[in-house]
Simulated assay, not measured.
Amino acid sequence: MKVLILGGTGVISRCIVEQLLAAGHSPVLFNRGTRKELFREDVEWLIGDKNDADTFQALVRPHRFDVVIDMISFNAADAALTVQTFKDRAGQLIFCSSTAAYRRPFRSIPAREEAEALVDDPAFPYAYHKAEMERYLHTVIEGGEIPVTIIRPSLTFGIGGANMGVLRQNVNIVHRIEADKPLVVFGDGTAPWSFTFAPDTASAFAGAAGNERTYGQSYHATNEDLHIWEDLYLEIGKRIGREPQLVHISSQLLHEANPALFGHLYYEKQYSGLFDNAKIKRDIPSFRNGITLAEGLDMMLRWFGREGHPVDVEKDRLEDRLVETYYRFGDELKSLF
């Protein structure tokens, strides 16, 4: 199949490209063309910016695709541009949404697709706009314009990512453990979660491509390796042979201090992150979700070491200030009694 990936160089999408190549398909990447070094094999590229709608449509107009995988639509308008552009020149559209689009708290645990509702509160913009995108796509499905499949990843770690940790501090976590500097954990650290890694998530998209069972359907695609949030830091400590020091700060206080930085904690991650994958396993037998937390973190640590990631000094200082505030509040609290 000839498969166009809108994006193609992100954490999940680069794995999709690799899996499509391994399966003998012909992936074509549409993006700004700044990261061609990611793929050893000869991959066709269309260079452009989807935000420039006229140029984007003119660039793809001469082509037809069996499948288009859209990894860069974040709202209904983005998705509408994809639908209007490809409804007559593609056999299927696959959109990347997010489990963040589910309303919290869940009605079912592990969460099942048919049991959950989409966010309708704009307070957490990322989740709200993904939900609005899905509501639009359901009108497309109902109208029969073109076969549409929606995949909802949960929090996914992978090579190239910058989203690990409360502050999304990545290699700073290793730095702080090695330097005996405390790490901030939101809440009491016991919120249940299944951490997912990019090669597994990518198998959902690759397996949905050209798969008629997925037409008109929505799926989450997540790990089922049960953990709590503290395990992320404790397991990294095990991998590097040092026990981390953890301090716990309320997700509500963090959000009130900086909604932009900590909204994902307050609106999403303080709740259960457990998902039932029966539906996707039924319809996409090639879907994989077996990378354990230990295996995935080994992959990430090898990447950190291989590329020599520098410490984010600004985030390190912010975490120092949060830790200092935590201890100062504790001392003031004790003085009350």
Rank of each mutant, 00 (worst) to 15 (best):
E178V: 14
G8H: 01
K87S: 13
L38F: 10
D49F: 00
S13Q: 07
Q57H: 02
V11N: 08
W229K: 10
E37Q: 15
A202C: 00
P122C: 13
I141Q: 03
L167R: 06
V28R: 00
D276E: 07
I94L: 00
E142S: 00
G237T: 08
D42V: 11
Y271G: 02
H129M: 09
F56L: 02
T156Q: 05
G91K: 08
A209S: 14
K315H: 07
E178W: 07
L232C: 13
Q270N: 07
T292N: 11
A101C: 08
V313M: 13
A80Y: 03
K87H: 14
V313K: 15
D231M: 08
H227P: 08
A90L: 04
I109C: 08
T196C: 13
E41N: 15
G296F: 06
N31A: 11
K36D: 08
F275C: 03
I150F: 00
P259T: 07
F197S: 04
L29C: 02
P310R: 12
S98D: 02
A22V: 06
I291C: 10
S98I: 03
L38P: 09
D331P: 00
A22W: 11
S286L: 13
I240R: 07
N170S: 12
S97M: 03
K50R: 15
K269L: 12
L265G: 08
G308R: 12
S26G: 04
D312L: 10
W303T: 05
A209W: 04
T9Y: 01
I284P: 04
G33V: 07
D88Q: 15
I150E: 00
E134Q: 03
L4G: 03
A206V: 05
L46R: 07
T99P: 07
I228T: 14
V28T: 08
F124L: 04
T292E: 08
Q245D: 11
W193A: 12
N163F: 11
A204R: 04
F86R: 00
P285W: 00
V11H: 05
T156A: 10
A79C: 02
H264I: 11
A179M: 14
I280L: 06
G10P: 02
I12N: 01
R302Q: 15
L246G: 04
D320H: 10
L318R: 15
K315P: 12
Y136H: 08
A58H: 10
G241E: 04
G273A: 10
P199Y: 00
A257Q: 13
N31S: 11
E224F: 09
S97F: 01
K181Y: 06
F65E: 01
R112Y: 01
R282T: 06
L253C: 04
L297P: 12
G237F: 05
G241N: 03
R288T: 12
Y128Q: 08
V166C: 15
I236P: 06
N75D: 10
Y215S: 04
T99S: 14
V43H: 07
